[in-house]
Amino acid sequence: MPTSFLWGLANPTRFMALSARILPWMAALSAVVTAAGLYLALFSSPADYQQGETVRIMYIHVPAAWLALALYAIMSLSALGTLVWRHPLADVSQKAAAPIGAAFTLLCLVTGSLWGKPMWGTWWVWDARLTSVLVLFLIYLGILALWRAIEDPGQAARAVAILTLVGFVNIPIVKFSVDWWNTLHQPASVIRMDGATIDASMLWPLFTMAIGLTLLALTLHMSGMRSEILARRARSLTLKAADRAAERQRPLPLSAGSAGAGSA
């Protein structure tokens, strides 16, 4: 028991110290790489002969889609950390990843729609991939809603962890069924991206943007974890202060036991 307590105590401490040192560097690095990616994407890469300038939307759309999935993977890993290993940072990591993932999923949907209007002639197509991402977004919203619904952070973390893992099991099923549904209702004429091989002149901006935005997402995740740790610290200090205040108002012999029981 003492080791587990120390483990719980030491890890966030070390994390706070380490992250405080790393965070500015990561922020700077992600800014530099993203800026380079933007330069490549907007200025030094050619327009596609078929899609014209709209191909440049891909340099945001594809990294956003990748991050939508990657952050869900981070959440699922953290959920395992919460439920199985009871790692004290896992709750925090889960909570910090959710809004970032939801934001990138939304960005993926918006840019996909902006690409679809000139290419497909409509803002939204019930295309298999778009629809799967929409369902992913709905799952993200559910997770965010559950975080807001339960007040106690530990209890909320366990509930969200279960939901996240159920979603993790469900996402491939959703993908499969949406694909199936899509082939059943074959859309009339839709320009597909799959066939086209990507030229190196487009691969580089895509790659750079993906790395830049991934670094950005990791920076935001780390910063979110720091905020959440501070928030929990404030919460526990407030609770302790309230305990102490309550204890002061009680007669002496009762104080220890009742305050201890009340601290839950």
Binding site: A10, A17, P88, G154, S236
Partner: peptide, 11 residues
């Protein structure tokens, strides 16, 4: 609350 408290005392 262990994680919350741990985080609370921590830094």
């Amino acid at each position: 609350e262990s994680s919350a408290q741990g985080a609370g005392y921590a830094g």
